[in-house]
Design a protein around this nucleic acid. Structure first.
Lengths: 241, 241
DNA sequence: ATCCGATAGAGTGTCGACAATATCAGGCAA
DNA sequence: TTGCCTGATATTGTCGACACTCTATCGGAT
């Protein structure tokens, strides 16, 4: 992830990256106050670039700011997590439909290779933690990229990606879902390879919806009851052989 | 649109509003360079708040910026317009599904009143220009609001709304579609009133898709051919009696 | 005549300082 | 003791100035 050229970007850009990483992986606790003079002193910069970085973090939803009061690291709520799932279901569903139309054969092949690598890595270790943290988002972002829709890519990258990573780092990820998610991913790639945008969208939406329901079951069983039992399958998280 | 309290916001906020309006309605031409010292002199402020406003405009997609080079008003392209339609189809479709679950009876009644007012205004004048410019977006934003999904509302407001207004002001809006759009709006409200989220989403997505196809036919007939003739209806923009 | 390099200019990035506002502690009155 | 008012303090908002980068023009060489 390191930038090959050391100082081709502006100072505010680097501050934004550093603060984003610090917030995402929890070094800056959610809800903690962000003092401009203190942070400027710590990073050895002036308040100008720091303010710019903070404002960009605000656009990413990682910090909340009030005029004349200051900025705080965004609080994580279950409600906010589930809201993001709904937005992702809509956005990534559409991305999948478009990817089925626009992705090249080599891109689909790359996607298949990614899934194979993840499967091998998952078979190797007992607790597939690493996979879900990075690989899953890699898969989703590849499909977003394949949609060829710059606006969609921009919205996902700026408004969703960092916050999804932050929620993952804080709340962790589900256990038995990951292996099932892999087969769902494979079916999605199959639909994309067939150029079946409608099916690809449907599968992606169901995939994200299942992820949300899984999270709701694990984190907030009360909320899961709002879904009117879409399938009578008693163990939907289990994998068929 | 005037703020009732004269100076309850910060200076950068007001600059952001002013510049946003100027860009949206075309007073600042697309592609024109934004010189920080010049704009600062014109508005009688320093470069600090101006830079903050420009950065927020960049987040809204109204301005593109390159490090050490400067900012320009975003160029409008047909491709960009159509890309936004796809994102809106996904996002507002989901918003409609959620609105069907969460909107209160009084909100639905308000929506019906809005539609009636627009119908009356449209019957009054021959060329229903005013309606489409403001009222249509009012309708869509009411539904977005009714989704009760703060993240969805935030994304729509920050990343889509201003650019949609800008494209409308520059390219204008279609003629014979507006009356058809009104009946589509009514059907959507009916589905929401019934609490039928699935139908509401389907209708909203079809509505936005039709708007996109209409725009593609009018602005870029070549692009419209990429859609595989979804219906053999020779005049789909015409209204049934 | 065309292409390349140097130089001047403008503009952006960054900094430190001042002014305005919110927060908090302390004192006073009921 | 509790509530409110007042002042002190720290933080944010804003400003002007300096340093560095990119762009464009001009001169010279091929």
């Amino acid at each position: 992830m390191d930038n090959p050229e050391p100082t081709a970007t502006t100072l505010a850009d680097r501050l934004f990256q550093q603060l984003q990483d610090a917030i995402v992986d929890g070094r800056m606790a959610p809800g903690s106050k962000i003092s401009e003079p203190e942070l400027a002193r710590i990073h050895g910069v002036s308040r100008g670039p720091l303010r710019e970085a903070i404002r960009r973090l605000e656009s990413s939803g990682l910090v909340v700011r009030r005029a004349n009061v200051g900025a705080r690291v965004a609080e994580l709520t279950l409600e906010g997590l589930f809201e993001i799932y709904y937005v992702r279901e809509a956005l990534e569903g559409m991305a999948c439909r478009l990817a089925a139309q626009h992705m090249s054969a080599t891109e689909v092949a790359d996607l298949r290779r990614l899934l194979d690598a993840q499967r091998r890595e998952m078979e190797g270790r007992e607790a597939p933690v690493y996979y879900q943290q990075g690989g899953d988002l890699d898969f989703h972002f590849c499909i977003i990229q394949g949609s060829r829709n710059r606006k969609l890519i921009e919205v996902f990258w700026r408004d969703l990606y960092s916050q999804v990573r932050m929620y993952r780092a804080q709340f962790g990820t589900a256990g038995p879902r990951v292996t099932h998610a892999l087969t769902e991913h494979r079916h999605i790639v199959d639909a994309i390879a067939d150029g079946d945008g409608e099916l690809a969208e449907l599968l992606m939406r169901r995939h994200i919806r299942q992820s949300r329901l899984n999270a709701q079951r694990q984190l907030d069983p009360r909320a899961a009851a709002t879904a009117p039992a879409p399938t009578p399958n008693p163990n939907p998280t289990q994998d068929p052989p």
